[in-house]
Every structure is written in structure tokens, then in C-alpha cells.
Design a protein around this nucleic acid. Sequence first.
DNA 1: AATAGTTTTGCAAATGTTTTCATAAATTTG
DNA 2: CAAATTTATGAAAACATTTGCAAAACTATT
Lengths: 344, 344
Amino acid sequence: MSDNKSKKADIVTVAKSARVSPSTVSRYFNHPELLKPATRKRIDSAVRRTGYIRNRAAQTIHGIRSGTIGVLIPTLDHAIFAEVVQAFSETVAAQGFTILLASHGYDLQREYAILRKFLEHRVDGVVLTGLDHDEAVFQLLDSQEIPCILMWNYAANSRYPSIGADNEQVGRLIAEHVLSLGHRKIACMFPPTTGNDRANARREIVLHTLKAAGVDVPEKWMLTTVYSISESKQDAKRLFSQTDRPTALICGNDILATGALYGAAASGLSVPDDVTVVGIGDFKGSSDIEPSLTTVRLPARRIGFETGQALASAIINPEAGPGKSLHCTPELTCRHSSGPPRKT
Amino acid sequence: MSDNKSKKADIVTVAKSARVSPSTVSRYFNHPELLKPATRKRIDSAVRRTGYIRNRAAQTIHGIRSGTIGVLIPTLDHAIFAEVVQAFSETVAAQGFTILLASHGYDLQREYAILRKFLEHRVDGVVLTGLDHDEAVFQLLDSQEIPCILMWNYAANSRYPSIGADNEQVGRLIAEHVLSLGHRKIACMFPPTTGNDRANARREIVLHTLKAAGVDVPEKWMLTTVYSISESKQDAKRLFSQTDRPTALICGNDILATGALYGAAASGLSVPDDVTVVGIGDFKGSSDIEPSLTTVRLPARRIGFETGQALASAIINPEAGPGKSLHCTPELTCRHSSGPPRKT
DNA sequence: AATAGTTTTGCAAATGTTTTCATAAATTTG
DNA sequence: CAAATTTATGAAAACATTTGCAAAACTATT
């Protein structure tokens, strides 16, 4: 604080103050073991005195890693993404990385632009959410030699290593559960699928699994509902007020299912006796709602952690190659919102 | 893609490829209007051909802004922080900034370390969450000349400009609401307050307001519950099973209140007839739960947006000074989880 | 006390840009 | 059509570091 006279302290300010050369100060930070203890001490106090803070930008242009990782998600407004980002960020922070975070709001154009910006900042690695991306995004990534991981979903043949849950399996698990309870009159509520491969894949496979069992979902029971408790509550109320009601409602995620549960309560229906409601995700709170929600658990924290580990080691150890995909198995979590249909 | 032979393209690679000098390429990006249209075109195709991506690190050491803003939050696991960060990030992204995000998990030591890391990256500005921080953090900030805003809470006399809600007012609003309904037997459930000035201030003022009205909260009705629906559900069940029950429960945030609502349902109590439950925050979904939650609305999106605006303009326009604090008024939102105590 | 061997430090070049200043090219003017 | 402007480009210095190499300062050995 005392040496506050001039502008920002740089390495030569410190060097002067410690009466050594700038190179020695550089070594103080990068190879302290090469310094004589006495010099080290002198520099130490000079750093303190001048309030010097290292300049990573200047290091980065020497080909030294920037220590940043770009994380690109659709939005933080979905609790589940916040959770996975939090786990990822903790994991890589422990290895000294800081994350650059940006959201594209399901706009593929913006995703490309953000990726470019990340690259301008010379991130050491990139995380994208989901498997599907614009071809331009992949090509840009191809032309760089930084590691990239597709987080959240898993597919054996993904274009870059993917770490997450297999949506096919997720969709099949929940559909089969509902079928196994004996339901035949089934409704579905899924989010809009533009720019959202996750929801899309899930819906396809749910429908497919039902069809394979001889169950067709009529048009009027195929709901498309934006990610919002109030919207899904509304839509569920509308659905449940029809004279011909489904005996089960499969929701594309737990937020929609939560709203549907509230909608059922507001319609005077008892869950699961009058209607079964199931979700996908196992968000925080899904186990505590009344009735507790039957869902498929997507291990968000684990996915974030594994992705962080994998990316950090791919960065630190580039010879080892880009890393492998990893499947974080989803699990059917049976709770109290699902049951057999009422006998007719 | 064609010119993929050598390593990363830099500005001189592009210059060679376009048969101009590096300076001209630099101008192409920074002052394109100075270039002859023909040259511009030549460079344009050279950039494409070489796959050149600008190096912000190299620009930054010229004192040019890094285009990054450091955002430091306790955790993303609380939906409300995710929401405020999302709004902030959208706002500053529109002005060309990218955010560096890190969470300290309520550990003040880590907050200081993260801030230093942000400064090493030469962020153009910093956002901290809440008003209270280690003195070392403030001193470090003082020694830099980058703008900083304290986001989430507001206080007229905050050490740096603060943008958010006034906790005193928040606490008073909810306490007065419960009192005005006629409750005298009141319990409180607050999160642990270590490293968390928000919860602390709220609790103090709630207790203070109650006391001023002659209501004392007995020790056994002062619950400290971690931020989790399941924990709060448990604790609420325990509270409600006592023979001497409170007629109202004030929760430090909507997550706790949501759990308490589930706990009441699980205890066979009807809300608000048997017991009033209120929260703080107005999180997503609080209006849709059954019964809908009475709470104090903290305008998260607005806070994020205003902070983004304020910080971006403080960065772009440094002469204008560090900016002013801004109070985003909290509002009592009366819904169906609160009512007068049952007549005795 | 001189020599050889180590350890510690400094010099200078390099990194990828931007920018000031000077020069060359193009345009206008008389 | 030459001179005077104006416009477009290039050369070189600057930015804050790191690093290979060489010099200097120590230690150990005789």
C-alpha cells in the first residue's frame, strides 16, 4: 500500500524495488527453488510493498496456459444446469482453473459467436452442453487443438467425448415404468424442442417405447409446455379437466412434473390414485414434494465432477489424447407420484 | 482450413497471406474505416484462409480492456443466485463482456484468493455478492482502479456501490405481515449465518421487529436449518409435532418455507388454518406451490440487470466515477400460505 | 590460493499485438 | 500537369512477461 505512487506495479517495478533483475522476479514465481533464500525473501517483501499482481495476459502470449476454461450452457435458469456448472466449477477450481461462463439461450448462432470469444481469450479447454451443435462449431473446434467435452448427455458415437446420461435410456426407463404399472391412457408434456436435443431425444424415445407397447398418444394429449412451473400447472389443469382423462402423465423434466402435480391438486385429483405423474431429472426438492415424485435421476453433480476431472487432465496432460466418453447411468427413482391406474 | 500447415495463425501470418503489413491487419480489426475497401477485402479472405482468431491476451498487455468481468458468488446451487447471475451475464454479454465466474462457498479466505485470481486475469470489473467482505478484500479492491459493485443487498452506506434489496426492509415487511395477522406464537427457521450477512441481517431484524411488538421467540422455536428442502421438511415436522405449536413460522428463504409447507402437509396440518408459513425471496415456483407461498419478493432478475448495466457503464466510462448504489425495492407478496391464527 | 565445479543471477531475444510517426500513394487543386 | 492535400500503408517501439545462454558469485578441492 505504501508504494502507491505510480500506476500498476509490473515485474520491473518489483525488480527495481528488490534490486534484482526482472528475470529473477519471474523466476521467483515460476521456479522459486532456483533462487537463493535471501533473494527470495527480498523479492517477497518487494512484491508486498508494491502490491504487484501477476499479469496472466502477459504470460499467456508466451504459450503458457491461460488457466481458463470456457463453459457454454443454454441457461442458468434451469436449476439442473446451475447444479452441474457448480460441480464442474468446484472441480476445476481445485486444479487452479477459472471458468468463463456464457449462456446461449438455445440460439445456435450465439453459441458459435460465444465459442469464438472464448477462443479469443485463449481458454485452455471448452465444455459444451448436449451433443448437437452447429457444424460450424465443431469445425472451429477441430481447427484448434484444445480439448473439448460435451457435457450432460452421453452417446457412444458423439463427435467429441461426451460425459453424461444416455437420453435413450432415460426415456425408455420412464416409459417402461409407466407401462409396467399397467397404464394405457398416457399423456406427455415436453418442453419445446428447438435447439434442445435433450428434450427432443427424450420425447422421441418415450413415444417410441410407448408405441412399441401398442400405446398411441393422441394429439390432444401431446402437450408442449415451456420450462415453467406456472405454465405446466396451467396446462395440466386444462388436461385434467377434459372429460376423457389420461391415467398417467409423463413429463419431460421435473419442473414440468412439479407444475403438473400442483395442477392435479388444484383440479381436485389425487396422485397417484386418480392420475400418475412422473418426471425426468430428479431435481432438488423432487423427493420432498407431496407426493414425492417418481422420476429418472440424472446425476448432475457427478456429471459436473467427472467432466471437470476429465477436462482438467486433458489440459494438463495433452499427450494422453482427448479423453474418453463416460456414461453416468441414470436411475429410475420410484416414489409416490406413480401407481397403477384405478380399476375401471 | 486449407492453410492448416503450421501452428496457430497470428497477425503476421495473416499479414503475409494478404501481402500487407501486420499493422494493417491490426487496423482491419480496430479501425476498419481507415482501410481501402480493396485491402479490407484482401485481409478478410486471408483471415478466413488462415483461420486466424484474435488474441485478447496480446491486446490486454497494451492496456486494452480484457473484456471480462469477475463474478464472485457464494454458490450457484441456490436457484436465486443462478437467476441473478443469468440476468447479469445476459446484460453484460450484450455489451461484449464475458464473465469469469467463481464461487467461494461462504469461505472468506477463498473469496480473497479468487479475487486475486480475477485480478491476475485483469478483469475490467468485479461483482461481489452481499455487503460484508473481509477487510483484505476491500483493501485489495481499493488498490486497483477497476469498478466493483456489491450485488444482491443494498445499504446506503455500503463500502462499494451496492445494488439490491435492503434486508432490514425485507425482514421488517415479513415480520410485520405476520404480526398484523394477529400471530403471537411465532417460530423462526433461518439458515446458518456463518459467512452469510444476508441471512444474518434478516434474522436480526425479524427478531427485533417481533420483540418491538412484544413477541419473544422462545429458544426451542428458533430453528437453524441448512438450505435444503429435505432438511427443512424434517425440522418443520419436528416443530409441528410438539404439543405446544406456534401459529406461524417465518422462514429465512423460500426453500426453507417450501420444505416447511411439505412438513406441515406431512404432519397433517392445514396451511394457513392450522399454521401460517411465510418465506423470503419469491423464488421460481413459490407462487405455484399449494398453498401458494406468502413471501417477500426479491427482484433477482432486476438486480442482475441493473448491476450489469451499472458495471458495464462504469467500465466503459470510467470518468463518470464508480457509480451509485441502487435500491431494488422488495415487495410483500401475500398469497395463500398465511392467514390469521385460529380462534382459541 | 588457485582451480574446478556449482549455484545464482542478469542480458537479451522472443511472444502477439497496438500505435505513433513517417512515408508512399492517391486525389484534389490551381 | 505539377503542387498541395489527403488518404492508405509500413517500420519500429512499446506492452509485461518468460527463457536460453552466458557471466558472475560462491563452494569445494587440492
